[in-house]
Amino acid sequence: MASGSGLTAEVASALGPRARLSGGTLFLLIILLLAIVGIGIQAAADATLFAQITLNGLSLAGLYFIVASGFTLIFGLMRVVNMAHGSFYMLGGIIAYLVQERMLNPDPTSFDLPQATLTSFLIPLIVSMFSIALLGVLIQQVFLRWNQGQELRQALITIALSIIIADQAVARFGGIAKEISVPVRKSIQLPIVGMYGTTRLVLLLVAIVVGVALVLIISRTRFGMIVRAGVDDRQMVTALGVNIQKVFVGAFFLGALLAGLAGVLGGAVNSVNKSDDGKFLLISLVIVIVGGMGSLTGAAVGAVLLGLIDSYSDVYLPDAITNYGVLLTFFLLVFVLAVRPYGLFGRPG
């Protein structure tokens, strides 16, 4: 059995991924190169389309990264696979929508949609993020704290919670997708790309800011230091007199906060939808499996891969097989796990 020491995945690898160039990695690189050449040929035919869908893929990747980074953070430090992470994402959007609706108080007879101001966008965002973060802490304290180390049981508990949350969302939240109103929704002229929507650009920007902030937190703060140490050797950190439980609470707070943030952003860019929980759980899983569990760099790389695959396969696959596009995700998983069983940036336990 895997021993407790030497955790497979670690947040700290964000600082210095040491990608060893083995035969397997080489194989992966060749596949990647072939894909790039294939797309390149298509891109030459229509540069604007290519630029647009690349940007689509990258902004989608931004959303994926925010969700997956929270998932990987919790996993890296605590070895808790939070199967309710997708539910956190979904609830994040729902809470923000409900708060915003209360604030804007739209006239039900009015045809024009209520327009959010900066305040009536940011307040729901903040309320929602912190509600989800507190929910995360609550779940950690009530359900997960006392069975630390029983990974499977913790995963099962979060699965059970996600079933309950999903069913209650169906019962309580309306039938169709809702949109979170944003202060500005228009398109701007970009070089090569042409007209492009602002919300997606903002999403991409937020994802980059989140990524940088996480790296800084992990590398520069005392919290981050303990997280890094805790990832490597939890017993030792405890023995040194650090209250690891507090750090766990912090990690769960931050991880859930990120899921909530992503839920709000996703609700603003796409829509708030009560069936998003399963989708975003799967996305988080695939990203951290591909990127390496616990690795922030891995989450970023995994998110970009998945985002680009999503948007390229929508456009560049021949019509007859677009429906099999999901197989690309399957093969991505197979290839990565075949050559690097612990993901691109993961470390074996």
Partner: peptide, 13 residues
Amino acid sequence: ALGETDYSSYIAK
């Protein structure tokens, strides 16, 4: 594909 939530690439096309 069913379950798509990001139509941006289809719109570009």
